[in-house]
Nucleic acid binder design. Structure first.
Length: 322
DNA sequence: CATCAGGGCCCTG
DNA sequence: CAGGGCCCTGAT
């Protein structure tokens, strides 16, 4: 698919705003068929709004306390005012541009131990770069697999069903629409070596095609109600629901479940110990950060993966298990 | 060469 | 509510 049209505009995120922390998440492992690209101050990604596919180019044109970003939207056809406005609103929601972090920053200031981390990333957002359907696909290939295998599965799926998007002499990939899998058999999916996940993906896609899942509706629900709806989806359990609540629906108080591999990393990060019980970790974080528990953890989590880019952190390398 | 757990979830008893 | 099974891979 070629995106020949482009349209630029500016947005002013609520201050404070951390550009690179918001658009680049080092804890997210990249696959081969890239869906995004980042360099300091500049970012690209494929971006789906309803059924339409765009590429988003974002440039930093401001500072932490005078935030301003330039968006260039690549599209297949020219966009009218109404369409453009809809996309703008979607960008603001997905990247939390309007969010007020005052209360959270106040809590962070009281944290003697991690204040330097919070200060370094002040204004960072927790973003949903993808639609709910896309996030579900990503979450499912992460289930019960090591990182490398997840990458392989996602690449195989993208190669077969994804959309290769060309714009401005660059190329990025986008996840297909659920309709794309309508006449694809479970066996065909299995042949991509995604194992039992084929069944999940097939059934989820069918549910989306039949309109059984309404992302916009779920956005308006309370956290618990939203969680109940997500758990109903075939292939979505407590851990996937937690990820979605945070990443797709921007609920910050979702630090209620810790997987064993995360537990090991948190133990080191928060206590400098090999293993602390998941209950204690949850309790401590909840006590300190209350309704911002998951957001606080997100800052500390991304920070350690950011550091990993420049320094060797042996204990972390061991736990990541590529 | 075999065995096993891995960034969970479904299903059964 | 506990526990087995699931696809495939790389580690042991």
């Amino acid at each position: 698919m070629k995106l020949d049209y482009k349209k630029s505009f500016f947005l002013c995120p609520k201050s404070p705003f951390h550009f690179d922390g918001t658009f680049y998440k080092p804890s997210h492992f990249p696959n081969k068929l890239k869906m995004e690209e980042w360099e300091p101050g500049k970012y690209w990604q494929t971006f789906r709004v309803d059924k339409e596919l765009f590429v988003l180019q974002v440039e930093n044109k401001g500072t932490t306390f005078k935030p301003k970003i330039k968006i260039t939207l690549y599209s297949q056809k020219p966009l009218n005012k109404k369409e453009l406005e809809k996309i703008k609103q979607e960008i603001i929601w997905r990247f939390e541009l309007d969010i007020d972090l005052k209360e959270f920053n106040k809590l962070a200031k009281k944290d003697r131990r991690f204040y330097p981390v919070f200060k370094k990333w002040m204004g960072m957002r927790n973003v949903s770069k993808n639609t709910l359907y896309e996030l579900l696909i990503i979450a499912i290939v992460l289930q019960n697999a090591t990182v490398r295998r997840s990458q392989q599965m996602l690449d195989a799926l993208l190669k077969k069903f994804g959309t290769k998007v060309v714009f401005d002499k660059k190329t990025l990939w986008a996840i297909w629409l659920p309709e794309r899998l309508k006449n694809v058999s479970e066996k065909e999916l299995r042949d991509l070596k995604i194992g039992y996940r084929a069944k999940f993906i097939k059934r989820l896609s069918q549910d989306f095609i039949e309109g059984k899942i309404d992302e916009k509706h779920l956005r308006n629900l309370e956290k618990e109600a939203c969680k109940q709806e997500l758990i109903k989806l075939y292939g979505v359990g407590p851990e996937t629901a937690r990820i979605l609540l945070f990443e797709a629906f921007h609920h910050f108080d979702t630090f209620d479940h810790i997987a064993p591999w995360q537990q090991k990393i948190y133990s080191r990060l928060f206590y400098g110990k090999k293993l602390v019980s998941a209950e204690k970790i949850c309790k401590d974080i909840l006590k300190q950060y209350g309704k911002y528990s998951m957001l606080a953890v997100h800052y500390i989590w991304e920070d350690i993966f950011w550091r990993r880019r420049n320094e060797n952190i042996p204990w972390l390398e061991k736990e990541i298990r590529l």
